[in-house]
């Protein structure tokens, strides 16, 4: 018996609209597509060579080396065990900034798919974020043990908070990636704006300096920079061996929720005409 004739239920192409719940359902239902897209990107990047892996591990080390030189030896500021401190922030920051930059291209890169098959388009920016998440975890798996051996482990119990902070960062980044991926289709030069915004954000986020280095009055402002509570939390967990304080949890949750809400709403509003715009 054929499936079509049985259910007398129809979709009207003129009135069907995706909802926020459809995005979530689509990601769950199309998880294999998501997995394949992430696997494809990883495969293309590390295709048949260990060298590919070395290159992507080199970036953070160079940044750590340069900032250690500048901050420890020239400016003579920054905490003890400075390379360890910087590395934690730099890796998490790279995850965010690479995701944001790449997401501006995710719809354009997937234009062929978007124009020939119907599937939940939110999969594309989400795949970008997960691809960068995989790279981040890889870098952490390589560098964290090294740092712990060189500089000694602090309290390890707070490490269990890491997955929760990371999940909030993934949600925050996913919301932003959805927004940027569709917005760039309409305004191609958004990617330049993103680059500028990210470099401003880099300096307003305590990546190279500890939050405590800033004066009391400035700290509140720095925490308004959306990536700050995440980076500070990683410092607390890995560098200080402490639990992130309640204020950080609150800020991370608020930023993640806002980003997801705004990102998915804009996405739903603009997604509709993607097939014609690309």
């Amino acid at each position: 018996m054929n499936r079509v004739a049985e259910g007398a239920e129809y979709l009207d192409r003129a009135t069907e609209r995706s909802t926020h719940a459809d995005i979530a359902r689509g990601i769950i239902r199309y998880r294999e597509l998501l997995r394949n897209l992430v696997a494809r990107d990883l495969q293309l990047k590390y295709r048949g060579s260990l060298l590919g892996l070395c290159w992507s591990l080199m970036n953070p080390i160079v940044l750590v080396g340069a900032s250690t030189f500048a901050f420890k030896y020239i400016l003579r500021v920054g905490p003890e065990r400075y390379p360890f401190f910087v590395l934690i922030g730099v890796l998490a920051w790279s995850f965010f900034t690479n995701s944001a930059n790449m997401s501006t291209r995710s719809m354009m890169d997937g234009a062929g798919l978007i124009k020939s098959v119907r599937f939940p388009r939110a999969i594309l920016p989400i795949a970008t974020v997960l691809f960068n998440l995989a790279q981040y975890l890889l870098a952490m798996a390589v560098y964290l043990p090294v740092m712990l051996v060189i500089y000694g482990a602090p309290q390890v119990l707070p490490f269990v908070a890491f997955p929760a902070v990371l999940l909030l960062q993934v949600l925050f980044t996913a919301g932003l990636a959805m927004l940027l991926s569709v917005a760039t289709v309409y305004f191609r030069d958004i990617r330049h704006l993103v680059e500028v915004a990210l470099s401003v954000l880099f300096w307003t986020t305590p990546v190279l300096y500890p939050l405590e280095q800033a004066g009391e009055s400035l700290r509140g402002w720095i925490l308004l920079s959306p990536l700050s509570p995440f980076i500070v939390s990683y410092h607390r967990i890995f560098f200080e061996g402490a639990w992130p304080e309640p204020l950080l949890w609150l800020l991370m949750s608020v930023y993640a929720a806002l980003s997801l809400a705004i990102g998915s709403t804009v996405f739903l509003a603009l997604e509709d005409r993607l097939g014609e715009q690309l």
Binding site: R3, V4, E6, G7, E9, Y10, L11, D12, R13, A14, T15, E16, A111, G112, L113, I114, K115, S116, V117, R118, D272, R273, G275, E276
Partner: peptide
């Protein structure tokens, strides 16, 4: 379902799986 009608209606069986030839190179 790649583009949306301007006016009128287009009903498609909800249960139907729609197959397209994915563009070569897409």
């Amino acid at each position: 379902g790649l583009i949306r009608p301007t006016s009128g209606h287009l009903l498609v069986a909800r249960a139907a799986r729609i197959g397209t030839m994915v563009d070569i190179g897409a």
